[in-house]
Amino acid sequence: MRPTDRHYLSSHEWIKISGDNAVIGITDFAVEELSSGNEGDLVYCDLPEVGRNLEESETFGEIESVKAVSDLNTPLPGEVVEINSAIEDHLEILSDDPWDRGWLIKIRLADKDTSKLLDAAAYEETLASHS
């Protein structure tokens, strides 16, 4: 079971809310899909500038492996207040710890309504239909 302290998108992003802010990352499944299990195959992550306002489900960046690329979408709207710049040079962090050290951006939430998002159980269900 994946962490229950956060919400998910079927496109494999997670969001963890604390107070007015939230941290966003991608799931272990996304990392595995992109890198086909070979962490050396993750090659590039493009994150937004601090201060950018993201609308609901807006694409804020991209992550690439050697032969795949995936958009990064925000589960909730808000202003980017911090990015995890360590990721850009050390993509292996994403394989090691996608849930904590592998966070991508922190936003100041413009809307905290999580009703459209998936909880961990619902996300697991979408994965089951994948394989």
Partner: peptide, 9 residues
């Protein structure tokens, strides 16, 4: 840099 290209992106 194949992810720039049409067969991936």
């Amino acid at each position: 840099f194949q992810t720039r290209e049409q067969h991936i992106r």
